[in-house]
Amino acid sequence: MDRPPALLLLLALGLCCPGIHGQSLEMKVRSPKDITQLRVGQRLELECQTDRNSGAFWIHQDKSGTLHFIVFISSVSQLTFSRDQRTSPRFEASKHNTVYLLVVKSFTPQDEGNYFCMMNFNQMLFFSPGQPAFLPVTTTVPAATTPGPTTPGPTTQCGITEKDSCQKTSDPDRRMQEDLEYFCLIFLWVPLAGLCLLLLQLLAITIVLCRRKAHHNPL
C-alpha cells in the first residue's frame, strides 16, 4: 500500500491551498457488522458515509502509525488502487450514492490498525474519524503445575522409651525443676566422690607406711 503521486498531490494541495474557511464536510466511517471479535481470514466491511459526491480516498494507519494509501473511489465509481491498478488481491471497493465502501477480503495481522476516509473538497482535505480494526488480544494462561511432594515438618512421637523427654518438652516448669535437681545432684556427688578418692589415697599411704615400718622393725 504505497503512496501514489495523486495522494501526495492532494496532501500538498491541502497544505498549500487551505481553501475557504468555515466550510465543513460530514464524514463518518463505520462497519455494518460487529468487528469487536475479528478473526484471521474474516471479511472486513467498512462504510464511509459523507454528504458530498466528490470521490473519496481510503487510508490505512498501521499499528506503528504509518499511513498507507489503499484506494481512490471517484465520483463516477472508478477505482484506483496503489500503483495505479484497477483491482487489488486484498481489497474491494465500491460506491453507492454518497457512501464509499471498502472491503478487506481476508483480514490478517498486517491489516490491523485504523481506517480513515479522506476527501478533497474546495482545495481542503477532510479526514473522517478513524475506525479501529484489531484482532482480539489472546492471553496465554500458564499451565497448571501439579504440586510436588511436600516434606512434612519434624514430628515428635512419644514411645515408651521417649516418655520422659516428651513430658519434659511439653511441661516447661517440670523440666526446669528436673534441671535444678540434676544440678543439685552434681554439686552433691562431685564433692563426695572427691572425698572418697582422698580417703582412698590416705588409706593407701597408710598401708605403705605400715609395711615399711614393719620391714625395718622385725620381731
Rank of each mutant, 00 (worst) to 15 (best):
F183R: 00
L13Y: 05
D51N: 14
I160L: 12
P154Q: 06
Q157N: 06
N122L: 14
G130T: 01
T108P: 06
Q157T: 14
S94E: 14
P191L: 07
T206A: 15
L10M: 08
S74L: 02
S77C: 04
T161K: 03
H68F: 09
G194Y: 05
Q61H: 03
H216Y: 13
P152E: 03
A214L: 14
Q61I: 08
K28F: 04
N217D: 13
S106Q: 15
R211L: 15
Y100E: 04
V137Y: 02
P5L: 09
L185D: 15
S74K: 00
K28R: 01
F72I: 12
S24C: 09
D171K: 00
I20S: 05
S170K: 05
H96M: 14
S88N: 09
L125M: 10
R39P: 03
L195D: 02
A193H: 00
Q157D: 07
V99Q: 06
P109L: 01
F116Q: 02
I186E: 04
S74D: 13
L9G: 13
P172G: 10
T80S: 14
T50C: 06
P32Q: 06
T139S: 13
P132F: 04
A193Q: 03
A6L: 14
S64M: 10
L199Y: 13
R211C: 15
F107S: 02
T138V: 15
F187W: 02
F72D: 14
F121H: 05
L219A: 15
T80V: 09
G153R: 03
P147Y: 02
L15D: 12
F121M: 09
C17P: 05
P154M: 01
S31N: 01
G159T: 07
T138P: 04
F134H: 08
Q49L: 15
M1D: 09
T140W: 02
E47I: 11
T36S: 09
V208R: 05
R39T: 04
H96P: 08
L79R: 00
Q167F: 13
F81Q: 00
L10W: 01
P32F: 07
V208S: 11
P147N: 06
I207R: 00
S88E: 03
C210R: 13
Q201H: 08
A193R: 00
F81G: 08
L102K: 07
K168W: 10
L202I: 04
C166P: 03
T140V: 12
G55P: 01
G65L: 05
L199N: 09
S54M: 11
P172M: 10
T50A: 08
M118P: 03
A56H: 01
P109S: 02
L203G: 11
I20R: 06
D164K: 13
K28G: 03
C210N: 12
F57Q: 10
R52M: 12
I160S: 12
C166V: 01
V103R: 07
Q167Y: 12
I205Q: 13
E178Y: 09
W58Q: 01
L10T: 04
W58F: 05
P4I: 11
M119D: 05
S106M: 14
G41I: 11
P147E: 09
P136S: 03
H21G: 15
A12W: 11
S75D: 11
P4V: 08
Q23H: 11
L10A: 11
D173M: 09
T98M: 15
H21S: 15
P172F: 07
H60D: 12
L197K: 07
F121A: 11
N120P: 07
D84W: 07
V141A: 13
L79P: 02
A6R: 10
G194E: 06
S64F: 08
